[in-house]
Deep mutational scan, measured.
Amino acid sequence: MPVRRGHVAPQNTFLDTIIRKFEGQSRKFIIANARVENCAVIYCNDGFCELCGYSRAEVMQRPCTCDFLHGPRTQRRAAAQIAQALLGAEERKVEIAFYRKDGSCFLCLVDVVPVKNEDGAVIMFILNFEVVMEKDMVGSPAHDTNHRGPPTSWLAPGRAKTFRLKLPALLALTARESSVRSGGAGGAGAPGAVVVDVDLTPAAPSSESLALDEVTAMDNHVAGLGPAEERRALVGPGSPPRSAPGQLPSPRAHSLNPDASGSSCSLARTRSRESCASVRRASSADDIEAMRAGVLPPPPRHASTGAMHPLRSGLLNSTSDSDLVRYRTISKIPQITLNFVDLKGDPFLASPTSDREIIAPKIKERTHNVTEKVTQVLSLGADVLPEYKLQAPRIHRWTILHYSPFKAVWDWLILLLVIYTAVFTPYSAAFLLKETEEGPPATECGYACQPLAVVDLIVDIMFIVDILINFRTTYVNANEEVVSHPGRIAVHYFKGWFLIDMVAAIPFDLLI
């Protein structure tokens, strides 16, 4: 008679799926529990143990900040960024110097990925580790590398530091407007667009060049630039800015003055950032001319202004700041037409079709709590990747769950009947059967004279019903998954307890 339990259901295979997918890609990662103190490590794979030199037993239950890997060259700011990422709910990448158990130093890129439950609360953290440099290539500990984003994938490793954006290309926007319009339909740009040429040739750093990471940081200074100062900065030398009595002219307006920039070969870094931020506020060169004239017309309804409409929906549905990093990277690809469009465009503009998908598509409701890094690593669709929660398995109709209350009560009843059979069957065979043979035949009273025979008949009927119930009862397979398919249940029961239950259900007393 089957006594099969499996009270692990309803099970959740999400954690096993993450481990299996990460292991298949030869990654070095740990999984931490966000619900406990210090976000203790609950799993670390073999790749991480080989990377740091510690065994799994030495890593388990330690804080996922990996303070046991810190050393003299470990930056405090990087460690603080990892700790801050564990307090938030967004994906974050941090470069930090770690030390192995043998004392060797290596520069590592740590990717902190939160995993949320159905309520939107962070319950786990996945920390992925990628070695960037070994100890002989690690720089000085005073050099802070965590304020910069990861290198873009479309640049060669040897040319990542030679990417320079020439400031004269930004200063000569109005001069290039006529050349853009003359391109017409034969050019790649839309009317009114501004073409910015980027020099990728390796050259020595000069005062006129600005690194790509500095251009990325310009967006942080746009908020500090007032509207009046932006307007004066875009007017140009024809209309000098008016300053109040006793007030000095704005240095932001002076930063885009061609006369002032041409007199000296070098520009201050602050002026460069502010000038680029001011130019980015204009949607095209037409807006710059309109600002000089004193009238700013409404933005025209053409394809170039609607190019950012799908980007707005993608940004609203993005799951991490990696989408913004990807957008900034692609927006700086050289030799393309940049349409400086305000994100607050007309909502009635139709979304044009684009061959290049900048932001990841909208994630469906079932995966809105899973970050983009987890979705990318697992390579699963929205119909396959579940949320991290207890999910009731989908069972067929008329199927009994093996952990249901009805099955528990039924098993206790069958257990009592088995005990009765084990006690009274030998007793009936030894004593009652002998008395029946010696006594007179009682054929007239039937079952009324033999109450134990009636009980034995009921017990046999219950055993037959138990066999039928076992054909529709779920079970737990070797992978700790609840199986509810009727065919698989029948095959599993035939290979197991079916023969024993059938022999126990045969009414031998009635056959004798």
Score class of each variant (00 low, 15 high):
P2Y: 15
P2D: 05
R4L: 14
R4Q: 12
R4T: 09
V8F: 10
A9M: 14
A9C: 09
N12Y: 15
F14K: 08
L15G: 01
L15F: 06
L15T: 06
D16L: 08
I18Q: 06
R20V: 05
K21D: 12
E23Q: 06
S26V: 05
R27Q: 09
K28F: 09
K28I: 09
F29S: 01
I30S: 01
I31E: 01
A34N: 12
R35D: 14
V36F: 01
V36I: 07
E37G: 14
N38D: 06
C39S: 12
V41A: 01
N45S: 14
N45E: 01
D46K: 05
D46I: 03
G47E: 06
G47I: 01
C49L: 14
C49A: 06
E50V: 07
L51H: 01
S55D: 08
S55F: 01
A57G: 14
V59S: 01
V59M: 06
Q61L: 12
C66S: 01
D67N: 09
F68P: 01
F68Y: 04
H70T: 07
P72D: 06
R73W: 06
R73A: 12
R76Q: 15
R77A: 13
A78R: 11
A79W: 01
A85Y: 01
L86A: 01
G88L: 14
A89E: 14
E91I: 11
K93L: 14
E95P: 06
I96G: 01
F98S: 01
F98H: 01
F98Y: 14
R100D: 01
F106P: 01
L107N: 15
C108H: 01
L109F: 15
L109A: 07
V110Q: 01
D111M: 05
D111W: 05
V112R: 01
V112N: 01
P114S: 01
V115Y: 13
V115S: 03
V115K: 06
K116Q: 11
N117Y: 15
E118Y: 06
A121W: 09
A121D: 11
M124L: 05
M124P: 01
F125R: 06
N128S: 12
F129Y: 07
E130T: 15
E130A: 09
E130N: 14
V131P: 11
V131K: 08
M133R: 12
M133Y: 07
M133E: 13
K135M: 05
K135Y: 05
D136Q: 11
D136L: 05
M137E: 13
M137R: 13
M137G: 15
M137V: 07
V138W: 05
G139K: 06
A142D: 06
H143T: 11
H143I: 14
H143Q: 11
T145S: 15
N146T: 12
H147E: 08
H147A: 11
T152E: 05
S153I: 04
P157M: 11
A160V: 15
K161I: 01
T162P: 15
F163M: 15
K166Q: 06
A169K: 13
L170N: 08
L170T: 11
L171M: 15
L171Y: 10
A172V: 01
L173N: 12
L173F: 14
T174Y: 06
T174A: 14
T174D: 06
A175N: 15
S178M: 06
V180K: 10
S182C: 12
G183W: 06
G183R: 08
A185R: 06
A188Q: 11
A188I: 06
A188C: 06
G189D: 05
A190E: 01
G192I: 01
V194S: 06
D197F: 04
D197W: 01
V198S: 05
V198N: 05
V198M: 05
D199H: 01
T201F: 05
P202H: 05
S206V: 09
S209K: 05
L210E: 06
A211D: 15
L212I: 14
D213R: 15
E214V: 06
E214D: 13
A217Q: 14
A217P: 15
H221I: 12
A223C: 03
A223D: 09
G224S: 14
L225V: 10
G226S: 06
A228G: 07
G236K: 04
P237Q: 05
S239M: 05
P241T: 13
R242I: 09
Q247M: 07
Q247E: 15
Q247T: 12
P249A: 08
L256S: 14
P258K: 03
D259W: 14
G262N: 15
S263Y: 09
C265E: 07
S266N: 01
S266W: 04
L267V: 07
A268W: 12
T270M: 07
T270A: 12
R271N: 13
S272A: 06
R273P: 12
R273G: 14
E274C: 04
C276R: 07
A277G: 08
A277H: 12
A277C: 14
A277Y: 12
V279G: 11
A282Q: 15
A290R: 04
P300Y: 15
R301S: 15
S304T: 14
G306L: 08
G306R: 12
A307N: 07
M308D: 05
M308K: 14
H309I: 09
P310I: 09
L311R: 14
L315K: 07
S320G: 13
D321L: 05
S322C: 07
D323G: 12
L324K: 13
R326M: 07
R326D: 13
R326C: 05
T329A: 13
T329D: 11
I330D: 05
S331F: 04
K332S: 13
I333V: 14
I333N: 12
P334C: 01
T337Y: 05
L338P: 15
F340N: 15
F340H: 14
F340Y: 14
V341I: 06
D342F: 01
L343M: 12
D346N: 04
L349S: 03
S351R: 06
S351A: 08
P352F: 04
P352S: 10
S354F: 07
E357G: 05
I358N: 14
I358M: 09
P361N: 14
P361I: 09
K364F: 06
E365G: 12
R366I: 12
R366D: 04
R366M: 15
T367E: 09
H368R: 12
N369T: 12
E372F: 03
E372T: 10
E372H: 15
K373Q: 10
T375W: 03
T375H: 05
Q376M: 03
V377S: 04
L378W: 07
S379G: 04
G381K: 05
V384D: 08
V384T: 14
